[in-house]
Design a protein around this nucleic acid. Structure first.
Lengths: 196, 196, 196, 196
DNA sequence: CTATAAACGAGACGGTACGTCGCGTCTTGTC
DNA sequence: GACAAGACGCGACGTACCGTCTCGTTTATAG
């Protein structure tokens, strides 16, 4: 039912891939702010106009590249043990952000989104919201199974879990590491678990 | 009492104030990214050089202006009731960010800090760390008073509390409002309180 | 009768005419420099490639269009009165350049020819040289008839006559008008006439 | 009485000279159309903005450079012999255009002026009109001295003389050479001289 | 009570990147 | 195979700001 926001036909897929690859590579190497559209175009062997034809800005290119990269942590595990699953997923996301260059690219993207509402909207739609939905569904199953309290505020729980990660990613008060994330999961779980 | 870094003599305090005022006004009106050093200088009736003489960048100017603005929510209340105090403080910070133009200026500052380590360091030193310290001291007093568990991970608690605020400020998944922040405080407190 | 350069087969004459028409119309309206090949193609309802298939450049299209337009002042009159005929022809050319949009289109063409030797060559071959030849033949007949001096430098005479027109067309020192052109013809004729 | 069209103060004269030098050198070497503002800036060791700050376009820069170069043929000789003086001056101008790279630079400038009325106006004001005035004054002295007819149309005479040069310069029908220019002078003079 | 050196306003400067325009070529169906 | 449509690599455009660098002109002590 949604209109498909008619994308022009006959896009050159080779250039498309080359641009995404150049973007993520350069951003990882030099940092988001130090990469120019011209550099992406030149590294991809592509005209600048070809980038502007298909994306609104550097941020939009990087968003698509990052979104591709997040594909493998999209699914939420369900082993039946809610606290273990939360830990697993949060640690997977953390590892993704820490062990690859994704973290710095992603920080740059979020920074760009602060002054680009269109980019912010797409970031939420494509990255934040799907992760949130997956977490919500898992928590609801846990609630139905009596593992967490029936009056648990699911959305607040999600925001606390992801908030802890993003707080450390963006404010860098201290290293973003799996142990810290696990502690946050435990503390949140302590506030919502049942005692049966 | 004098600041450690030797500041040159004979600074024009009128210009100093005019620059901070122009910076915060313009950033609030147009957004951090859309304000240039030249615009700040021109609105303050000041030469560009005067800005570069006393600050390293636009971000540094805005950091100082924002820091001034945060002064009135620096102190952590202590009524003896830890959960009420946490709520009060978190709600005060939230109100500060929501009801004034501080929120958007602050978001721009944090965005700029993602690609400016020096600015990020000063942001943490001058804003994040003092707030964290005040929160930590209050929590420790509560722990000593037996209001929260003796094995409470204080730092994780702090990160969860502030993480919830910053997550909503920077990701704008849903409105940053006092009710939501209060719920987050409650949920975190449920995970750390004692049952006496 | 067929032109020497082998023209590809199956040319679409409707498109051909539409392109020439769009070219002269647009150039008259916006000026030579402000018309793009893309605009001509789009106004003619034609693909860009179709233009490049049959012409080397925008200048070549406009040259052909202008050449068509000059057809009606190609023939040199011969009433037996050389000074009257010179006046008639020079004034006809002037009127052509002044009363229609040809003047500005033609100025653009000549400007383009300054940096396009191929176009300059064709311009001379197709427009300048035929006019020059017609003038030369008429002057030689006048010389044979004893109306102008037998030692008249015919080529210099021609260059002076046309030079006066082009000087005013291209340098716009003062308006290009029939009266001024008639005065130039008279002055030149005063230098070459016989006194019989 | 004329307002001086207030030029901003404190222009860097070294850059000014470097720009004019780079412009005339590059245009002579590559041709007007093949020189970009970026190339002039880069060869002059100057920012592009510095060119745009002081000139409206590439054409305006080249006009100033050419104007400087024409300085040494500005004065009209007066030996008392009008036909000799006309020949001398016309031949000097011709030599200037032919023996240096001025000719091709000047052709490019005139071409650019066809689609830039502001540039055309300045070209006439700064180059065409002064030459025309000098020629007019010399012809009027000759007329007062009885060397040319009292009813001579001075302006038409001037347009014929310069027209012959510009016609050959811009249409390149045949080489622009001193001999041809001398013949044009002689023919025009034949039409205006007195027989005493 | 100067004089002198700093900070100041103004803004030109050499740069870098921007996002747009148009070039001439190439590709994909359609007639 | 010519055609309409238009994506493509490319190069230049003219603009916006950057952070640095003169310019005089205040101005507030140090001699």
């Amino acid at each position: 039912m949604e209109p498909v926001e008619s994308v022009p036909r006959r896009r050159n897929e080779e250039s498309h891939r080359a641009i995404l690859h150049a973007a993520i590579t350069l951003v990882a190497e030099k940092g988001f702010e130090n990469v120019t559209v011209e550099a992406i175009a030149s590294h991809a062997g592509v005209g600048k106009q070809t980038i502007y034809r298909w994306w609104r800005s550097k941020g939009a290119v990087v968003l698509e590249a990052i979104n591709d990269g997040f594909a493998d942590v999209a699914a939420f595990p369900d082993t039946g043990d809610i606290v273990a699953d939360l830990r697993t997923q949060m640690e997977n996301v953390t590892v993704k952000l820490v062990t690859t260059d994704f973290g710095s690219a992603y920080r740059g993207l979020i920074a760009a989104a602060q002054s680009d509402p269109e980019l912010a909207r797409k970031h939420i739609e494509q990255i934040i919201e799907p992760a949130s939905v997956a977490c919500r569904e898992r928590l609801i199953r846990a609630r139905d199974a009596g593992q967490i309290r029936s009056d648990t505020d699911v959305q607040t729980t999600i925001d606390l879990l992801y908030g802890a990660i993003y707080y450390r990613l963006l404010l860098s008060t201290r290293p973003l590491a799996t142990e810290q994330v696990a502690q946050a999961v435990d503390l949140v779980f302590a506030g919502i678990r049942t005692f049966n």
